[in-house]
């Protein structure tokens, strides 16, 4: 995919604060960051450092206290709120709907968007994540690893430009965590989707092309396999 055709997410000088017990708490300040489609990023840091908040800012789910966030595509710059339809999420708790089978959970975003042959497409994705034999099983009948595979298929089935994963292996054993990580990175690469992972796992973070560490209100690039520029 040509770089100029890819979407990018830019945070320019953003700060995030919130009130707690009548006191202003600052999570981070003056942060500038660019995330590009087709690449993988990991955000690490201690609990409470604001990793998930940063994820929400990047995905346009939250507004920064100061600064701006943009979605850049085809040389146009738009607010991040417009990115919603181009994003898929993967959660630590999987958040599959318990009433639906694996097949229907994956077909859900397609059906809601009115896509024809939603179930066929969902089936092919479940085959891809190795759950072709578990199509009619409900989440309660699946293991943690299987549930997360289903969640990955669900997040990618509608071909989003970015995937935001919040501790995707946090609830899994090491073998399952490794398998899920393989799958997640492989699928994102295949789909050309940008992947942003929030994690405590050094092993998982190490697989990303860039690793950011968020601590004491500052975001630092710890490691980069890219030629991207960041300023913190």
């Amino acid at each position: 995919m040509a770089y100029h055709l890819k979407s990018r997410i830019e945070l320019c000088g953003v700060s995030q604060t919130f009130s707690q017990n009548a006191q202003q708490v600052q999570l981070f300040q003056d942060l500038t960051l660019t995330i590009a489609q087709g690449h993988s990023y990991a955000i690490t840091g201690p609990s409470g450092s604001g990793k998930s908040s940063l994820l929400m800012l990047l995905s346009g789910l939250a507004q920064p206290s100061t600064g701006q966030g943009y979605w850049l595509e085809n040389d146009s710059r738009r607010p991040l709120a417009g990115l919603a339809k181009e994003i898929g999420y993967i959660f630590q708790q999987f958040h599959l709907l318990p009433e639906l089978t694996a097949l229907h959970n994956v077909a859900l975003p397609l059906k809601l968007r009115g896509v024809k042959h939603a179930e066929q497409l969902a089936k092919s994705w479940l085959d891809k994540v190795g759950l072709g034999h578990r199509l009619q099983h409900k989440p309660a009948q699946l293991s943690g690893g299987e549930q997360q595979r289903t969640a990955i298929a669900r997040a990618l089935v509608f071909s989003p430009k970015f995937i935001f994963a919040d501790e995707p292996t946090g609830n899994l054993d090491s073998q399952n965590a490794q398998d899920i990580a393989d799958l997640l990175f492989a699928c994102c690469e295949e789909q050309g989707a940008g992947l942003v992972i929030v994690t405590h796992s050094e092993l998982l973070a190490a697989r990303a092309e860039q690793i950011f560490n968020l601590a004491q209100g500052h975001c630092q690039l710890r490691q980069s396999k890219l030629q991207e520029v960041y300023r913190a």
Partner: peptide, 8 residues
Amino acid sequence: SVILSFGL
């Protein structure tokens, strides 16, 4: 929430 997470 899940529906919103699909960008709807």
